[in-house]
Design a protein around this nucleic acid. Structure first.
Lengths: 193, 193
DNA sequence: CGCGACGTTGATTTGCCTCAACGATTGTGG
DNA sequence: CCACAATCGTTGAGGCAAATCAACGTCGCG
């Protein structure tokens, strides 16, 4: 059962009581997502907070010219969602789409709030998660401001070498903020050097 | 007393008990910072989480060419610190410097942890703060990837018009990720249009 | 008063984009 | 399971947004 991996994930951070385990088991819903299937589209309200058990999804925005800009790749044991839309119940500006066939566990906003109110331990767990995500985005802002595309690409490779085999260069280009064509010239330059 | 503004700030989110108020009063330390004074420098461990009562500070990085890149302006009723360095007790890569004479309230890492352990309410408060900060940085990453410098500047003006009178264009340029020279040509173009 | 930070302008350079084209992979429907 | 379509990765020519470098007047602060 995929729910076991979520229990295991939480226990790795702070041990859960039987009662908490029970709440998690009854309020997270398993779901399988096909490749190219969406679990969130622009204009929709983000109904779920999503934990990835297996597979890979991307969180991205489509700009006014129709171009996609990747904010996040969500792999095994990570969370994905548009938190702003999720908590405030406002229309999302983002998309979440599966890059591979994936299995996920989802909780509704109501139940997520109930989780916090009933078991404050989860305030702590999700506080730490949010802090770490914030720190990661800070690094990314600094990198976008201060580094060249080549530096961003090599930093990406260093930080996420596992993704190289799983994700196309088109997706990586969109994540680091360059066109696929220019990423190609970067890659050529690197292999020559 | 400046501590009252912090109590008020917390009460605006979730009402504090007398005991919690007492903990806050005894564990946050007031401090005044002169203009151009640092409360964090690269290489140091970030010893404090800082609440700004009055004034304005900037959080920034200096790159290998000696250029500054602003991550955050911290005004009244906001928090500033290098959370990564603060929690992990690792050397910081960032600077925090006062842009104006400021008064702040600071808590040490030990006491911040104690705050969470003794009063889980603060896990919730800081979870929400971290989530909101994360969302703001997501927007900034998307903007850096998908918008021109002119769009970033007008978005900045729209979101933070109060800052125009308080902060030099050099600082704003560093925040939106352009050179002061180019910001100047952007501003000229806008006033003409 | 004088010095350093600021804001601006202009000339030149460069990093990256756009558009177009092509072979190689991948995926999929019949 | 094959054939065709779609996506991917690459290359090249040309163009634009923004950086760099240099210079200069202004202002606020010490």
């Amino acid at each position: 059962m995929s729910i076991e991996s979520l229990i295991h994930y939480f226990n790795n951070k702070i041990d859960l009581t039987p009662e908490e385990i029970n709440f998690v088991k009854t309020n997270f819903q398993a779901r399988t997502i096909k490749r190219r299937q969406f679990i969130l589209q622009e204009g929709d309200i983000c109904k779920f907070n999503t934990f990835v058990v297996e597979g890979c999804l991307k969180l991205y925005k489509v700009d006014e010219h129709g171009k996609e800009h990747n904010l996040q790749f969500a792999l095994e044991d990570s969370w994905v969602g548009d938190l702003e839309s999720f908590y405030k119940e406002t229309p999302s500006q983002l998309y979440i789409e599966a890059l591979e066939k994936s299995t996920v566990l989802q909780i509704t906003q109501k139940k997520q709030i109930e989780l916090y109110l009933s078991y404050p331990k989860f305030d702590r767990i999700f506080r730490v998660l949010a802090e770490n995500a914030m720190i990661a985005y800070q690094h990314r802002v600094l990198q976008n401001i201060s580094s060249t595309a080549e530096e961003r690409y090599t930093a990406f490779l260093k930080k996420s070498p596992q993704l190289l085999n799983r994700i196309s260069n088109v997706q990586i280009a969109s994540y680091i903020g360059v066109t696929p064509e220019f990423l190609s010239t970067i890659r050529k330059k690197i292999t020559l050097a």
